[in-house]
Amino acid sequence: MIATLQIFLIISAALFSIGLLAALSRRHAIFILIGIEMMLAAANLNFIAFWQFSPVRAPQPVGVMFVIFTIAIAAAEAAVGLAMVIAVYRHFRTTNVDQLTRLKG
């Protein structure tokens, strides 16, 4: 098996789908966040694969820059998301998103 761009893209698509499965199927708020982080990691893998296999070599490492900024933003998102989970748990005594129906019309 020769590693081509397509194989990296397919692995990344699989990771994205698994993250989507976690975000849509799990009812625990922390696991929805885990699914979102997995999808972001799949996007990072795509950035690096496209950068490494691109036929033109830019003078700056553009793909690496993208991934560094994505990781920083994903970390900020995880921190705020987990703080929200704790705040919601304090208020409602649950982290099951099916039971958080206060705003339901």
């Binding site: 698509a13 994205f16 789908s17 499965l21 199927s25």
Partner: peptide, 18 residues
């Protein structure tokens, strides 16, 4: 906690499409 099987269908559909 519950588990929604609809998410599995959507995830497989997205994977096949990609």
């Amino acid at each position: 906690h519950g588990f929604k099987w609809g998410g599995v269908v959507v995830a497989i559909g997205v994977f096949v499409g990609l």
